[in-house]
Structure formats: C-alpha cells, structure tokens
Design a protein around this nucleic acid. Structure first.
Lengths: 363, 363
DNA sequence: AATTTTTCCGTGTGCGCACACGGCATATTG
DNA sequence: CAATATGCCGTGTGCGCACACGGAAAAATT
C-alpha cells in the first residue's frame, strides 16, 4: 500500500503536462492528442492513480444529483413501506454528495396509474430512475425512455428480462421457494400434507409467485426419505374474511393431515386470520417479510418462519447503486441478489434494527 | 431538506464573525469570547449546520489514522480468518481517509502470547486499537493502557464487563442459544433427546459457551406441548478422533432416542466426524459459523442449521466504528450486537458473497 | 501570404474546511 | 504612563479535483 496517495499533479508532473490535461483524459473529455493521451494513461496505470473522492465531490457539489423513485403506494400495502424507507435512509447517507430524491407513487393494481407516475417522473428530468416495474408492458415504456435520454435505470423487486438497464436488485424467487421447502420439511413428519398458497390478484407479479411455487415443489420432489403431499391454492379474494374462513375449514376436511402452509408473499397473516384458534397453534406456516401483522404472529408462534425479502435493502441498495455508478463511476453488475434471511422470533429484532443504524461507506 | 447546504461561511456571515472563529467553536478549540461562542452555537443549531465531511477529510488528509488490530492467529483456527478479512475489507473501504491498519496476531490458547501482542501493538503508538480480548486478566492491561493514553479501544467477539472501552461488537450469546433451541426443537418429536456439546479447552472463552448453553436449556424449559430431554457434554479432547468416536458411540447406547445436537462453537464438523455414516444422516445438528468444513457438511445435509456469528462483520464494523468515532466524531453505542443469521444450504451463498461486495457509505 | 479555423494545452478559480500566523485591542506589570 | 503580556479575532493558504477560459501552435481556407 503506497504511503502517499497519487494525485493528478503527481502524474501531470511525471508526464510533463498540466493537471488540466490529465483531468481531460480521466474524464475522457477529448481535446487531447493521441500521444499524450497514451502517455497519461500509462502513467496512471503505472503509478496506480485513484481519484480522491472527497476532493471530487467537493469540486462537484454545486450541481445536485436528482433521482426519481417510482414505487407502489405504501399506504395500499405495508410491504412497500420498506423499500421506501430504505431509499430514504440511503438518501440520508449520501446527502453529502448533494443527492436529492423525489418519490412517485402509483396504485399497485392499476397499470395505467403506473404509466402516469412514470411520465411524471420523467418530466422532472431526473439524473437517474429507480423503479419497481410491476407491469411488464408498461415498464418497457420506461426502459425505452431512459435509454433514449441516457438516464441510468435500476429496477427493484421485479426484473424485466432482457431489458437494458443498469441493474436489477431483488431476490432469487425460485431459490426462496426451495428454502421455504426445506424449512417446512424440517418440521413435517412422514405422511403429512402441505399447501402452497398464493394470495394475490392476477394482474400483479404472477411471475414471482410461479417461481417460488416451482422451487417449493422441486424441493419436495428431491426428498426421498419422507413422503409429503403438496397441494396448491390460488386465492384472489384474500380480503374477504368470511370467504377465507370457509375455504380454510374445507381444506382440513379434505386433507386431514394438512399441517404445513407456504404463503408465497407477505400476506401470511391473512391465512392465519382465516384459521380457527385451535388450528393456528398446530399448523406450521412459512411466509415472507417482516411487516407488522406477520411479526406479531411470529412472536406468538403462529407463524414459524418468515423469509425476509429484504425489501428495505432493495431500496437502500438501489440508491447506493446509482450513486456509485453516476458519482463514483463504478462498474455495477446487471443483477444483484439480496440474501434470503431466515427469521424466527429469536432473531427478528436484529433485522428490524438493522434498518436504523448501520454505518456505511461508499467504497 | 434544505436545498443548499449550510457552510461555515454562511453561519459566519449570519453571526458577523469570520469563518476562523466559527471553526474554533466547532472544534471547541477555545480562544473565543463567551458571547460570540453562544451566538455561533445558536446560529449553528438554528441553521442546521453539518460539517461537509468531504471537505473536512480533504483538509485533513495529510495525517494518517493508524489502527492496531490484535487478533488470534487465523492459521490456528479458521474462525479467526473471518474477522481478519472483515478488517481488511473495511480498511479498503476507508482508504480514502488515509486509514492504515497493522495486525498483531497471537496464539489463541496462550495468554502470555496475547500480552506480547498487546505490548507490541501499543509500542507502535496507534491512533486506535481493535482487539479480541480472549483472556480476561490480560485484557485489563490493554484497557488500562488505552485509557491512559486516550486511545479509543474496540472489542470484538468477547466483552469485558465494566471495562471502559469505546464499544463492544459481537453477539448475544444467550440469545443464540435460545435460537438454537427453537431451530432444533422444530425438527424434534415428542420424547426425543437432545445434547448440548462444548468442544473447547478450558482456558478460552468459557463464558460464551455457558451463556449459549443457558439459552438453549431455557428454551426447552419454556416448551410445554412437547417433552424433550436435554443432556450436556464438555469435551476438551475434540482433536482426538478415536476418543471422539468412542464417546459418540457410547452416547447412543445410553440414550437411544438421542436425535439432536447443539454444538456451541464453530466445531460442529468435529462432532460429525465422530459419528458413524448411517447416524450422520439421521441425527439433527445445529452449529455455528460458515467455515469450510461446516459448509461442506451443511450442503450434504449432515448439519441442518448453522448460526452465523458474523465474525466477518465484527471485524468490518470494528474498523468502521473507530473511523466514525475518530474521523467523523460520531457517537458510538457501548455495545453493538450483530444479527443471528440462520443458515441452511439454500441461502448460504448470499452470506458468503456478502463479504465480497457491499457498497457502503459513511453517514 | 494573410486570415480564419481548429486542435491542443496551460492557467486560474472555487468547492468547504483546518489551522498557522499575525494584528488589534484590552489587561497586566514596573 | 510606557512597556509588555494576554485574550480574541480575521486573513491567508492548501488539501485534490472540475471546469471555464484563453492562448499558442498547427491546419485549413481564401
């Protein structure tokens, strides 16, 4: 490790040009002869030049970096409050770099509303966009627009395959299904039945749920020392308690040894509400996400495991990714998978608190 | 959020003094009249002044910040390679601030050797010290020395209660025992037996292991719908395969329904090695730490759960804590607990990779 | 050959802060 | 009252970088 950091001046001196010239090749701003360009680049590599980010940000911080954030309305679903908070926290972390955030919320079951938000966000001429592209076709409009204006675009939660974006941040849905399988299986006995439950409307991210289901079933297909029967249920009317209760009751009539459930999104609490109290304690449920209603049931033992989709971190990392790209000119991988945290009552606190502190540094 | 950040000059202008004066009150360097001091402080609070860290680090970065790191020799135990790597990664993250690290390794079963390392580290007159104080009495010497020279001291892995240090970073051992109890219990049936296994020499951190054991037993005491019998074993000769095999065989003779094990440190693989192949697949083992031999067994299903002690993060956070304190003059909590990550085959990759990337920013 | 254009490069200033230096008051001393 | 000391405060410089400006040389044009 070099004792003294190499500066622009150092390499300017070495090559025999001015710092202005070196700066030009650093930023590839042209107006430099081929020969000198060559020699400067060589010297930079040779001496191991790395720009001083503190100085860079100092010299830059008159012009703000504005990021538009397009997310589903968090008042509609507690899940979406998490990425929002992650974004806010990240914004605070990089405030020194004069990063400004503007939110654009849309209604999560209305593709048109999403399009509206996209248009509004683009009209503000942001320096970058962070979005959760819940609707495939509408998202393509966003991708095209960003591409045209050379605005870096990051997706969280849902990826659009083949889309030319800076990065996707989310989870491996298939793998999370496999994980759920392993967890549930550990608590089931030979001959038990388990059920995969989708609680969502058709329009939205059906892809996620499919992948999770596939992973879940694949896990049990790979088991050979036990026989667990797997069933599937898709319920769009998860908001109608009476219907849900009736449905649940019926299932136990049909499958007396039904002892395990896997809820493929953050609505595990809706399932618990549909169960009779005596059943709630016996049945083993695996769900997703650390939202309030789930947390309560987790501590009561009525949900056994929650898999953390790290929605908070998706927001946080999304902002940091854009900052790293635009302000630090770092290379960013096309997809960034977040960990699948396994949560039980005993370790839940750490994952909740983590959203509050965590000192961090842009490398 | 203010559109334009408040600078020294802004508040100097407002109060009607020079930036030099404001600077003096910011750094409490005295030589300011009581009245002006008052008015400046008021203005700072009023206008919400926050120093520009980039500018500060720029103006400072002639003088390096040297941190001495005192850890057990990582060649002696794979566990200790993790905090070492975390430290190295953190060092890289804050290189811009001219932070320099020097390691001092000691032999983990020799208190005297620890003392030697401590003395050597102090002779280098570091600006701060990060240490894993495995030995109580010897650690007190370090605490006293650091206190005398006003050198900030951070402990990882082991806390010394009542010691006047900047911060302790580690885990809640008791809680990790409770967690292990919950995990194991989920896979056990009524009437099964489980065993708590300590594989360690007497000299070292016995305290940790006790706490974990206590938590583990307390969990099962709190269970009422199942009856699980808990046994305890303490084995110092974990490095003698023949002895271990004989011991293991005997246990199953005594307790035919022994189906669960909880190994209180990172040596779960030693237990697996002591079991007969046919038993390895049936028995349910919960252990600690993502070290190579454990990972292999986890993927083979011979270890069911690993609890991640986040040793890597202990090192990482340790360095960041010192940087935040000394260079950013942040307030630091006396104890910083790290999350208890639950690891199975399906999510292990994320926790391993996490040590590689993670873009971060000092807030 | 004189003029204009283009290419290439150096100079200078400012970002916000830390800190040394020196100056002007007032207080202290003989 | 003069001489010295002390308390308070302003000024100036530099940290490393970005970028605007302008000048000199080379190339293109008339």
């Amino acid at each position: 490790m070099p004792d003294q950091r190499i500066t622009l001046k150092d390499i300017a001196l070495r090559v025999g040009v001015s710092t202005g010239t070196v700066d030009r090749v650093v930023h590839k701003r042209g107006h430099v002869s081929a020969e000198i360009q060559e020699r400067v680049e060589l010297a930079m590599r040779d001496m191991g030049y790395e720009p001083n980010l503190a100085a860079r940000s100092l010299a830059n911080n008159n012009k703000p970096f504005r990021i538009a954030v397009v997310l589903p309305d968090y008042r509609q679903d507690p899940y979406w409050a998490q990425p929002k908070e992650g974004v806010e926290r990240a914004a605070e972390s990089v405030r020194h770099y004069n990063v400004q955030i503007e939110f654009f919320f849309f209604s999560m079951f209305q593709p048109k509303n999403f399009l509206d938000s996209v248009e509004k966000s683009l009209k503000s001429a942001p320096g970058a966009v962070l979005a959760a592209p819940l609707f495939l076709e509408e998202a393509k409009v966003l991708v095209a627009a960003c591409e045209e204006h050379h605005v870096p675009l990051v997706f969280i939660n849902t990826d659009i395959e083949g889309a030319d974006i800076l990065s996707y941040i989310g989870q491996d849905s298939y793998q999370s299904g496999v994980l759920a399988g392993r967890l549930l299986n550990f608590g089931l006995s030979d001959g038990d039945h388990a059920m995969l439950v989708n609680l969502d409307k058709e329009v939205s991210s059906a892809r996620h749920l499919q992948d999770k289901g596939r992973g879940f079933k694949d896990f049990f297909n790979g088991i050979d020392n036990k026989s667990i029967q797997i069933h599937t249920a898709i319920l769009e009317d998860f908001d109608k308690p009476a219907f849900m209760r009736a449905w649940a009751k019926k299932q136990f009539d049909i499958f007396p040894r039904l002892t395990g459930f896997f809820v493929t999104n953050s609505r595990a609490y809706k399932l618990v509400e549909a169960l009779e109290p005596s059943v709630q304690d016996k049945v083993k449920i695996v769900g997703f996400d650390l939202i309030e209603p789930n947390l309560k049931l987790l501590s009561e033992g009525k949900i056994r495991f929650l898999i953390n989709q790290n929605a908070w971190h998706q927001g946080y990392l999304g902002i940091l990714t854009l900052v790293n790209k635009v302000l630090m000119s770092k290379d960013i991988p096309r997809t960034q998978y977040l960990p699948l945290d396994i949560i039980v009552k005993e370790n839940v606190d750490y994952y909740l608190k983590r959203t509050l502190e965590l000192p961090m540094v842009i490398v």
